[in-house]
Nucleic acid binder design. Structure first.
Lengths: 130, 130
DNA sequence: ACTTGACTCTCCCATGATGGTAAGGTTTAT
DNA sequence: ATAAACCTTACCATCATGGGAGAGTCAAGT
């Protein structure tokens, strides 16, 4: 399987597959004589894992750790759970930050009449925020 | 006022002030004979505006638009409101994406006993996600 | 006057994840 | 044989920010 097929099958772009290889997230694949990377079902499986972990917001660094655990038959599920919970906490932090922005901005926007007149509590609010 | 003072007063790093100047977000400041940038109260005011808009999650590009409106005495508040509401919609999208990740991951983590045993629904769930 | 420390200047590099493009080689199908 | 579709590497861009090097400047204390 060439990289394009692996990309289509895993929903990871060829560009990213090469990138993951270069940063050491995945092993270097075998090559044809012409230098084409060759992939197999298990590689696609791995790439799909990566893709889904990305969809869950894990960083490539965290995914690296997940992959070591995935590969390790003697892993403790507690280790995986710890990673996941740390990531949930991180998501919570980010959600809270965005929500706070949203709240503040919504309050400002509600106070703005939004017509042709120039006076606008949004700009005032940004300028004068405590 | 030198850049360091302006940075402290506005809570925008000197590094960023130079950057904002270079990308055209703020005007080039006057310089001393030695080439030191000189700032005044109104510059600090502007930088604080930028800082707060950043805190609300506006991109520098959006901030550029906000600044034009800020500077324009004949602006229509509707234009500002439109920008703000577009940004709120963007925040909503991002919050929803993160929340969905959080939900999925929490479900997986709850199913993981998190002990010394290797079997772990989190890794399974990532690998087998629909 | 001279040193010292704190400041400033520009320039280059790095982040994280991804995409684009260019210039060239390969494979496959017509 | 030729064209289409693919692959390769290498470089550049994004976005906002920080780090560091190497050199110049300024103010305060000796």
């Amino acid at each position: 399987m060439n990289i394009g097929d692996a990309a289509r099958a895993s929903d990871v772009s060829a560009k990213m597959i090469r990138h993951y290889e270069r940063i050491g997230l995945i092993r270097t694949s075998s090559r044809t004589q012409a230098g084409y990377r060759q992939y197999h079902e298990r590689d696609v499986h791995l790439l799909r894992f990566i893709r889904r972990a990305r969809d869950l917001g894990f960083s490539l660094d965290q995914i690296g750790q997940l992959l070591s655990l995935w590969d390790d038959p003697g892993r403790a599920s507690a280790d995986v759970k710890r990673l996941a919970e740390a990531h949930i906490a991180d998501l919570d932090t980010r959600i809270a930050a965005l929500s706070e922005m949203r709240t503040t901005l919504t309050t400002l926007a509600q106070a703005c009449h939004g017509d042709h007149r120039p006076d606008c509590p949004i700009l005032q609010g940004i300028a004068d925020a405590t």
